[in-house]
Nucleic acid binder design. Structure first.
Lengths: 208, 208
DNA sequence: CCACCGACGTAACAGTGTTACATCTAGGAG
DNA sequence: CTCCTAGATGTAACACTGTTACGTCGGTGG
């Protein structure tokens, strides 16, 4: 079996000793520090301490490497959302999810752009990679189901979850694109908080 | 004055005879038909019937060309939104704006991605270009002000407009990224319509 | 008439993703 | 033990990218 199709992965990529994890960690590091434009096969190989062919033997090429970044991003992103499950009520849980979503995205802006904004132009996620994204989305669906069961929201959970996702992603996407006209970060954070509450209010049972 | 800093522009780029407009039209055509990855200086020059240096004399390089695409996109986008000002009430006007927004974005997906999703990794819009984007946003602010005056929405118009923008952009951005899990386009269109109404409901005076 | 300046094309530069090919190492077969 | 096969690796080359130096052409002002 070709190594770049192997499903073996180490939990802690940064401390991994196998070449695949070392290359992936180097790629994510470069993506974080220098952006998607600097993510070249040669720079990744140099940072990982191997030759350019290493990227091809372990990932099948740059597309495969970006796909690994994509999947790894959703894995970490999902874990960050999972850790935010604290909340007294279902609605507070949803608000906490929104905050955790924004925190992760703003802490990993370039990674988020690769996952959601095609920051690497020639990469299109495969069906398998999109399935990973769907698994993350399912967390939001489950939380929404709980909110509907709690009578905090009314509607079809899938539709509600997508609606909330779109709203949250919209705020963050505009912010990352430099389209948010507010001057400082605290204003944007507060606007996001208010917007999320407004979003939830639009899905509240009383409205319909 | 260097030609690539000239503000002279023809209204109809496609039928223009001056080299600058011809190159810009060729670039937008390639962007539309082959995507941001195929937008190379050589391919644009070949399509425009000139040499690669033409792009440098008229736009100062690829960044300048992409900036022109960015600005031209917001110009056309703003016109499309402006043409959607029909609506009996202020709230229907806002809904029509949302529909026109989605229609333009889905008709010009790659162009939209350049404007909102950094589809060209190494390009960052200048302050002048962002001012053009802001002018488009102002249309939404004006429509929101009218809705507030009509008592259709309650809140600070700028905050409301940004909230609506984020929601609309979120739906479209996820759809363009292939993250919308609905199978066919009509389902997505209906979900967008419902979501927009929900969005407006969350800003209605009755809620607060 | 002519000198100048801007637009243009050719060719080269460094850097990109990718691949052919030789080398080397690990592990099993006899 | 030897042999030898398969896979990982590195070097070098390929076509392509954005960019720029340089020579040339054409129109304009003196």
């Amino acid at each position: 079996m070709a190594p770049h199709l192997s499903s073996v992965q180490t939990d802690d990529v940064a401390n991994a000793t196998d070449p695949r994890s070392a290359i992936l960690a180097a790629a994510i590091s470069i993506l974080r520090s220098e952006g998607a434009g600097a993510l070249t096969v040669r720079s990744v190989a140099a940072a990982a301490g191997c030759s350019t062919t290493g990227v091809y033997t372990w990932f099948g090429g740059k597309n495969g490497l970006v796909e690994a970044i994509f999947v790894d991003g959703f894995k970490r992103f999902g874990e960050a959302l999972d850790a935010a499950k604290r909340g007294n009520s279902a609605r507070k849980h949803l608000a906490a999810l929104g905050e955790a979503y924004r925190t992760w995205a703003l802490s990993n802006p370039t990674h988020y752009m690769v996952m959601f904004a095609k920051a690497v132009p020639d990469y299109d996620p495969s069906d398998d990679a999109l399935a990973e994204a769907r698994a993350t989305f399912d967390q939001l669906v489950v939380a929404t189901q709980a909110a509907v069961a709690d009578n905090a929201l009314r509607g079809e959970p899938f539709e509600l979850a997508h609606h909330l996702w779109a709203g949250i992603h919209g705020y963050i996407s505009l912010e990352l694109a430099g389209m948010d006209l507010r001057a400082n970060e605290s204003d944007r954070a507060e606007a996001f908080r208010v917007g999320l509450q407004r979003q939830l209010a639009g899905c509240a049972p009383a409205v319909r």
